[in-house]
Design a protein around this nucleic acid. Structure first.
Lengths: 110, 110
DNA sequence: TTTGCATACCTAAGAATCTTATACATAAGT
DNA sequence: ACTTATGTATAAGATTCTTAGGTATGCAAA
């Protein structure tokens, strides 16, 4: 997909879901994970990812924990309680969006 | 869904697909059709629709035909040849997006 | 009769989310 | 010495939307 316009708005859902499954992750790890899971089709850019992480943190959905590995900085993010709740909402929203789009696009109904 | 953020980027796909199925439609008709097909869940706003239609026209994907019905103006849009091709692309993109998102979000794979 | 709703078009300001480009820094390979 | 990988970050610009207005006709209800 190489970041189709449809991807817009999905980044938060992706971040929250990955953190829901992996307990804690750092930014670079998220970009690599997404690349791997989508076989290179979706590449999260840093310019989108880091501001998104900061915003989710500011909203109280994520907690940060700074670590130093191999003399390099890492910022591990994990879901807060309200982050876990929001993950459920976002996933429901995604399911609903897909359902709605299929209703609009499937030839039998329109 | 009341226009979730995921909807961003989907409008062109929706417009093209509807025009692909209905030959010609005017703006207001599109908003009503979408509302009906999604049972009121998705409401295309005019502030999004009209600029989108104008842009698709400027890109050569749509042709316009002005009509007057009940003394009221209507602008009928229909797909051009390249608009029909682009519709196929957009629908493939949507299918791919959904597949990719499911790969990221389905618990069994991540 | 005038008030409101449906029909029908339009644009402008602002918000949100992304891309692109750039910057900084360490480690490891060529 | 140079490039690639790892790791973070921000700023300028593009795109796409929402919100809020504007214009106008037809019809029904108060």
């Amino acid at each position: 997909m190489s970041n189709s316009k449809l991807y817009k708005g999905s980044l938060n859902t992706i971040i929250l879901k990955l953190l829901n499954q992996h307990d804690k992750m750092y930014g670079y790890e998220i970009t690599q994970k997404v690349k791997a899971l989508t076989k290179g089709e979706l590449n999260i850019t840093e310019g989108a990812l880091y501001p998104a992480l900061h915003k989710l943190e500011a909203e109280g959905l994520l907690d940060v924990e700074i670590a130093k590995v191999d003399n390099r900085l890492r910022k591990y993010y994990k879901l807060t309680e309200s982050g876990t709740k929001e993950t459920v909402n976002k996933l429901e929203e995604l399911a609903e969006y897909i359902k709605t789009m299929q209703a609009l696009v499937s030839p039998k109904l329109a």
